[in-house]
Computed example of a mutant assay.
Amino acid sequence: MTRSLSTRSGRIELRAPTEQDDAAVAALRSHPYTRRHIPAFPETFTVEDAKALRLKRDADLSHIPFYIFRTDTNEFIGATSIAYLDRDERACDTGILLREEYARAGYATDTMHAVLKHAFEEEGMHRVSYHTSEKNVGMRGWLDMAGATLDGILREAWPDKDGYTSVCVYSILEQEWASVVKQRLEERIDKRGCLDG
């Protein structure tokens, strides 16, 4: 099992979940910023809930979870995963949760580059999919920038407090990763590195 992934910038590292991170995960999953585009997440998510989720995913061979840490401070900043991994069909899903203060600062790009690289180049995936709320303009813009394709919209697929939210399904195929997406993300990461440095 993969225990950690390095990132192109070196600013963050993706690590396997541990018990020490359960409180941070509980806070992330129940935070209003996280829940605004994932309405199925509960308002209250306890440390015990985080532990149960971690143990469930540890036992699930179709799920490779990672927690995101800053390398300079060792601070937990979010979570990502490769989910619904189907080795026969060579397909999986992925996504990302970041703490609000780390949004729009290049951490998602660095994280998703590492996850996609692992999915396509190490796990041998042909297709990686993303599901995001139709209202999540930020994530949809990021997926468009990266070169993902909007496959369609699942109408009223996620229940929320007002009824239902429609879900956009995007995908990246292995040839698109190799010919377009990888380079776009690396250029963006490297440009941010120059600005930061």
Rank of each mutant, 00 (worst) to 15 (best):
A24V: 01
A24D: 12
A24N: 09
A26G: 15
A27H: 10
A27I: 13
A27E: 13
L28N: 09
R29P: 00
H31N: 13
H31W: 09
P32K: 12
Y33E: 11
Y33A: 14
R35C: 11
R36N: 07
R36S: 10
P39Y: 11
E43K: 08
E43M: 08
F45D: 02
F45K: 02
T46E: 00
D49G: 03
A50I: 01
A50L: 07
K51H: 12
A52I: 00
R54W: 04
K56G: 11
K56I: 03
R57C: 02
D58H: 11
A59L: 08
L61V: 14
S62C: 06
I64M: 06
I64R: 09
I64F: 04
P65F: 01
F66L: 06
Y67F: 15
I68T: 11
I68D: 05
F69E: 00
N74D: 13
E75R: 10
E75P: 00
E75L: 06
I77G: 06
A83P: 00
A83W: 02
A83F: 05
Y84R: 14
Y84E: 12
D86S: 14
D88M: 13
A91V: 14
D93V: 04
D93L: 07
D93K: 06
T94Y: 09
I96R: 10
L98G: 06
L98C: 10
R99Y: 00
E100Y: 07
E100P: 05
E101N: 13
E101G: 09
Y102P: 01
A103Q: 10
R104Y: 10
R104C: 12
A105E: 13
A105W: 01
Y107F: 15
Y107P: 03
T111C: 13
T111A: 03
T111Y: 02
M112N: 01
M112W: 02
H113C: 13
A114H: 05
A114M: 04
A114G: 05
V115P: 00
V115W: 00
K117G: 15
K117V: 07
F120R: 03
E121M: 08
E121K: 04
E121A: 13
E122L: 11
E123F: 08
G124N: 14
H126W: 06
H126I: 03
V128S: 06
V128P: 07
H131M: 12
T132V: 13
E134V: 15
K135D: 15
N136R: 02
M139Y: 04
R140N: 14
R140T: 05
G141H: 01
A146R: 03
A146Q: 07
A146F: 14
G147N: 07
T149L: 11
D151H: 10
D151F: 08
G152E: 00
G152L: 03
R155D: 00
E156R: 05
A157T: 00
A157K: 04
W158S: 07
